[in-house]
């Protein structure tokens, strides 16, 4: 029996940037980008579910993000996660990877013991690959990054194949350990229809608060209780639940700042036009030979 925690993230779909997403000042209009489940995190969830299928245990998915990140937690439930946690607070906004790893590591300590933490290698919005190792360091546990394959899990150890520069290595590590996986490690399973029917109504604290808004007949506490009794409450951890150090969260806890962003400007039209004819190409080759670029 193994208990896994999976770190998941909702990201803007940077792979599908279209014209109206880029603004005139060169910044990105995030609201115009669809929010998606970071694919490598989905692969991480798949690996955790495979371990549960083989050896038994539990899978808990957690995300730090704004209230709408509940969307991907519902997807985790559809795939087979046993428990999900939304870690959300306005004070967490603007966090860089250091502040994020602080909040995540404190949340993990609160959630309980584990054998594995899985995460995608990196998220497509920043491509930093930093939050996993930063979280492992804060929890004082070992890590295996760039995992391509789980070879075996036995006697309290995991053996994994990981990518290295120019090749691969096989690593054995005692549990607990944090692993980050690359996209080819596994194909995420599709949603189970029955689970979709069951969990599409799952709601986080913020979503329940929204339901209550403007309806004097409802109370948040009563509604949370009701959702909990039907196993449809997405457990929600805020600043107060985690007893965090405010100066280490969000913008305050983030040493890195974006100083400026520029869209990639092309100084187009400065190239010399060469006719695609033998004469045109011949002149170009002459020029390149003269400049000793071709010999």
């Amino acid at each position: 029996m193994y208990h896994s925690i999976v770190l998941v993230k909702q990201v803007p779909d940077t792979a599908n940037i279209t014209g109206n997403v880029m603004q005139e000042d060169g910044t990105v209009n995030r609201s115009k980008l669809p929010a998606v489940f970071n694919h490598e995190d989905k692969v991480a969830l798949e690996i955790a579910l495979q371990i549960k299928d083989t050896y038994g245990g539990t899978v808990t998915a957690i995300t730090m993000g704004p209230p709408r990140a509940s969307d991907i937690l519902r997807e985790c439930l559809y795939m087979g996660a046993d428990r999900v946690y939304l870690i959300s607070d306005r004070k967490f906004a603007g966090a860089d990877t250091l502040a994020t790893s602080y909040v995540l590591s404190e949340a993990i300590k609160k959630i309980g013991t584990f054998d594995f933490i899985f995460a995608g290698r990196q998220a497509i919005d920043g491509d930093t690959a930093q939050v996993g190792p930063q979280t492992a360091e804060k929890l004082q546990i070992p890590q295996i990054t760039y995992v391509e394959e789980i070879r075996s899990v036995e006697n309290g150890t995991v053996t994994a194949k990981r990518k290295i520069d120019g090749g691969f290595e096989i690593i054995r590590c005692a549990l607990p350990v944090l692993l980050t996986v690359v996209k080819d490690t596994a194909e995420p399973r599709s949603f189970k229809a029955k689970r979709v029917m069951t969990y599409k109504g799952a709601r986080s604290l913020m979503e329940i608060e929204k339901l209550v808004e403007g309806n004097s007949l409802l109370s948040v506490d009563a509604l949370v209780h009701e959702y909990e009794s039907r196993s449809l409450f997405i457990k929600t951890l805020t600043m107060d639940d985690l007893h965090l150090d405010l100066v280490r969260c969000g913008v305050h806890g983030s040493p890195t700042k974006v100083y400026k962003v520029e869209s990639v400007v092309l100084n187009s039209g400065e190239h010399e036009h060469v006719e695609p004819t033998k004469a045109g190409i011949g002149k170009l080759i002459d020029k390149l030979m003269e400049d000793h670029i071709l010999g």
Binding site: P12, T14, A15, I17, M22, G26, T27, V28, I124, D125, G126, D127, P255, T256, K257, V258, Y259, K260, V261, E262, S263, V264
Partner: peptide, 14 residues
């Protein structure tokens, strides 16, 4: 950043 669509300058001021 953002899948290569922008160039960001990051600082660590404090």
């Amino acid at each position: 950043a953002f899948g290569g669509n922008i160039i960001a300058t990051i600082i660590t001021p404090d």
